[in-house]
Amino acid sequence: MRAIALAVIVSAVAIGGVERLYRAAGGLPSVVPGLTRIEFQWKIQQTLGRAHVAYVVGDSRAGWGFAERVFNREYARLGSAHDVRAVNAGLAASSITADIKYVLDSRAGGRPQALVVNYSPVGCYQFVYAPGPPIPGLKIQDVLDDHLDSLLAERLWTRARGRAASEQIALYRRQHAVSPVTNWVRRTVDADGFVNGTLATNTGVPVDNPATQLLYFTQFIAAAQSDPSAPRRRRDDFTSMIREALGAGWTVVLVRFPIGPRMRDLEETLPADLRPDAVALASGVPLLDYTADARTAWFSTLDESHLTPDAARALAPILARDLYRFLQ
């Protein structure tokens, strides 16, 4: 037993040493800035027994910005004939088409439900992350393990990342300097049903979140303007997926959560057929655009793209009231 205890102590010291080296070499943790795949799939799985569900899908704009509990409280207060439950099914950096497909497939053969699709140009036309194939036999233990993994990922940066750690340390030894990197380092799970993330750099310089987002979107929009063929293919996939949902009897509403003024101006420069109104028209669904709504004019964003937690909580009752007529 002494040998085992000693080995565990030595291992802990060695792990601590590597962890320190990795951090000194400019390593950062790698955290999912939103729902993980397991959490997403579990959330959808938990709704399968319910008769009336509104799935709010989208990329991180939905994942960070839809306060499902506030929505459900407000919706219940409105006195709906049906006990509709909304679910935040926003998945960071995901293809919204893939998200919708996952939701439709998971309820295939069942009663049609409601889809509230939050438009985002990169979620519709660029991101490729997907919920993945359904994990067979997904159970509560998997979700609890997933939560533990997420918590540990923020604290133990080299856990299960032996190769990344050794490469980072080797790079530092070669260059004798830290190569600047920005990464998601923390996520915050809010009790009202949304999850967001925190970006950080390894140089200690604070991240200019709006500038980072605007730069990313500027590059995407410039590429879409010079060659819109790829976004157009993705738009066609998106609209055909929406039409498939409508054909299966689902209620579908396209929404556009509030964004910052600079981001809104930037998105105005998208080719006309890629803008939300054109997409709604092509899909044959209504559009609720909150980027130009007096009720949301005071809403602030974290980075021009994602709502602050307070704004997310404030948007939910507005959404509940607006969606009420569609979801009856």
């Binding site: 060695a14 792990i15 590597v18 080299t158 856990r159 990342r161 750690a165």
Partner: peptide, 8 residues
């Protein structure tokens, strides 16, 4: 322990 930690 080390392999379980780093290379899971």
């Amino acid at each position: 322990v080390l392999l379980l930690y780093f290379y899971a």
